[in-house]
Structures are given as C-alpha cells and as structure tokens.
Design a protein around this nucleic acid. Structure first.
Length: 386
DNA sequence: TAGGCGTGGGC
DNA sequence: TGCCCAAGCCT
C-alpha cells in the first residue's frame, strides 16, 4: 500500500474536524427513515439494498410508499425472488426507470439461489449484482455491513464540491470529489462508522446543503448558518450556491406519434407488451406508431414500429381520432401523442405477435408506464384518479 | 464517454 | 409554463 502515506498526509486537521463535527451532528439530527436501522439496531441488508435501488434518481418522499408495499408483500429477499416478474413490474409501475425493477428481480433471484439468501458483504461481491453500481455497492457495504467504503452520490458530490470550493465542472470533477470524500470518511477504529458518515453527508445535502433553485431573487441559498461544517467549509460565505459547477446540458427534443386504443365487443383492450431491452422494457403500452423527431403532422408517422400498429389499421380500419392529445416528458425527450380509437365488431379476434387482449377492468392493475396511463385516462378507459 | 433511461415536485 | 432537480446504472 504505497498510497497509504500519501492518503494520510492529505488528511489535515481540517478534515478531521469536519468528520467529527458531522458524525456528532448525525447522532442528534439523523432522519428516521423506514429502511434505516434504529440507533443500536442491526441494519437489514435486504431493506438497505431495496431502498438504495428505489432511491436511485428518486426522492425519499416518492420511495416511502413503494418501499412499504414491497416489504409488506415480499418480507424477505427470497420472497421477492420467488415472485412472478410481472407482479414485480406491476408493483414498480409509476416509479420509473424500469430497468431497476428488472434488475431488482434478477438480483433477488441471484441472492436467493447463488448466495443462500444472504447478500454479499463487500463492495466487490455486491457490485456483481445487476443494478448495483459503484455508488450502491459502496452504500450497502458501508450501511448494511459496517465496511469502510467511500460513498459518493449526487448529494455528496454537491457537499464535497462546496466544502473544497471545487471549480472543475462535473462530470470531470468526479475523481477529485471522490478523493475528498475518501479523505473525510472515518478510518481506523472509526471506519465502521463509514455508513453513518455517508448517510450524514446525504442528510446534510438533503436538508441543509441543498441544491440551488431559481427564485425571483436569483438562486436559493443553502442553510450554512446551522451547518455543522460551516467552520471548515471553503464555500461558506462565498456563494456556495455556485457549486458544484456543471457542464451545460444538451437540449431536450420533441417527438410525435400515435397511440391506438382498440376495443372489442367484449370490453377488451389490445395492449402490446414491450420487449425487455430499451425504453419502457417489459411494460404494457397501447400499440401505435413509433415516436419520431420533427414534424407534428400525424400522417407523417406510419405504423411501422414493432408494435404492430400498421397491421391493426389494415385489419380494423382507422377509427376516430380524438381531439385530446397526450403530452409526456421523459428524461431525454418530450412526446406528444395523438389518440386514435378503434371499435372492433368482433370479440377478441386474433392479434399480431406481441399484442394481447386485456380486460378493460384489469387495465389499472397492469404495468403501464405513466405516459400510457395518461392515454388510458384521455380515452376514458380508467378513472381519472387511478 | 456521453447518452438512454421515468416520474413527480418546486418555483 | 418551462426548467431544474432527486440516494445512478448500463452500454
């Protein structure tokens, strides 16, 4: 370990003061969250893992109800592993980033079948599970197993960038921010508190060292005056809201398309189950056109996608076009959908591959992404409140 | 390595 | 309203 002396020499009294101050603060101000062990209790690795997956790019407030439903329905990882994947997808519906749900189920099965139901207790082992990346592996190792791991998420990037007034823009600054967190994370006999320290940094980032928001009077300010790191922070009193510096983002384009609401004589709706890879993988959607960049003219969007829209129109006619359109914003584009409604004079006629008849009453229980829930609402298929 | 991948909330 | 943000991972 040639680096140990280098690392040690980069740890100053300022670092040590910050580490101690933050751990002391956490002992008093830690948030009480459903997946956190109470003080003095042993953490539940299944709960820690499940919450960490759900919390990826998702707020605590949103996760709480999903976490409660999952742990109620599947109390142990073996229960989740034994569930049908469709049930898991349906329970996840609305939470977004559905690859997380597919990976969640795959990882549960691997833990149950290959590890006898026990999660790997170190970063390398955890990292092998699908859906567990560098952040999540470090977080679980530290929080659930008391390992000294260096945990860096978006909150911690912000706190460390401010604490050292890092001017390098993200994502280039990542390695630098990791080194700062490494230098701050408790070592030696205190190394077992790495999990507390990481959670303390996240609580700090969530509650005090908050991200900037545009207001009438410029950017909102973090709560430096009550921050345990105020005395050691390089940005305190020097416009901390300007950190971290970020590289400019690419703009979000518009896409247009058609969704087909096809109903038979018996109150069944034709839905397509999307293939596992790619956007909305494994979820149910209304068939239709692809979503193309550019022109908003409906006629420009032939039904040539893999959803069988063209076959449906040839077979059953074009129906009526609804006046209501549906708009939905994804992370990297906005889509505007025109709805065509087709009523078929038959009961459950054969459908192309990949399409299925679904009872109208069971629509709400299916794993529909939010954009398709909007379509179902606009077409009057489900209650507006569902 | 930069872009794909959801959704809800705040202002 | 439009834009930004939130406990990232994968390719």
């Amino acid at each position: 370990m040639t680096s140990s002396s280098t690392v040690s020499s980069s740890i100053t009294p300022r670092h040590q003061a910050a580490t101690t101050a933050l751990l002391d603060w956490y002992d008093v101000h830690r948030r009480d969250l459903p997946w956190r062990a109470r003080h003095g209790q042993r953490p539940n690795p299944y709960h820690v893992w499940l919450s960490e997956i759900m919390l990826q790019q998702t707020t605590v407030a949103t996760v709480k109800s999903y976490f409660a439903r999952f742990t109620e329905r599947w109390p142990e990882v073996a229960d989740l592993a034994a569930a049908d994947r469709d049930e898991v997808m349906s329970a996840w519906a609305g939470l977004g980033y559905y690859a997380r749900a597919r990976n969640l189920h795959a990882a549960a099965k691997r833990v149950a079948n290959d590890h006898g139901g026990a999660f790997p207790a170190d970063e390398d082992g955890l990292r092998q599970l699908p859906g567990v990346g560098p952040y999540t592996a470090a977080a679980i190792a530290a929080i659930a197993f008391g390992q000294r791991a260096v945990v860096v998420d978006g909150n911690i990037e912000r706190v460390t960038a401010r604490w050292d007034a890092v001017t390098t823009p993200l994502p280039t600054a990542r390695p630098e921010l990791y080194r700062i967190m490494d230098a701050l994370t408790p070592r030696g006999e205190q190394g077992s508190r790495a999990g507390d320290f990481a959670q303390a940094m996240m609580d700090l980032g969530s509650g005090l060292c908050t991200p900037p928001r545009k207001t009438k009077n410029g950017l909102s300010q973090p709560s430096c005056m009550i921050c345990p790191l105020m005395g050691t922070c390089a940005a305190s009193g020097k416009a901390p809201e300007n950190f971290p510096v970020k590289k400019a983002k690419t703009p979000r384009p518009d896409r247009h398309g058609v969704a087909l609401v096809i109903e038979d004589q018996g109150g069944h709706i034709a839905l397509e189950r999307r293939r596992d890879d790619g956007m909305l993988g494994g979820l149910y959607v209304f068939p239709g056109s692809g979503w193309a960049d550019g022109s908003p003219k409906v006629a420009d969007y032939p039904m040539t996608s893999d959803c069988g829209g063209g076959i449906m129109l040839d077979q059953f006619g074009h129906g009526e076009t609804l006046n209501t359109r549906v708009e939905h914003i994804f992370s990297h584009f906005r889509v505007i959908l025109t709805i065509q409604r087709l009523r078929i004079e038959a009961k459950k006629p054969p459908l192309p591959d990949g399409l299925h008849w679904v009872d109208r009453g069971e629509l709400a229980a299916k794993a529909l992404p939010t954009v398709m829930v909007k379509v179902a609402r606009a077409a009057g298929l489900i209650d507006p409140r569902d």
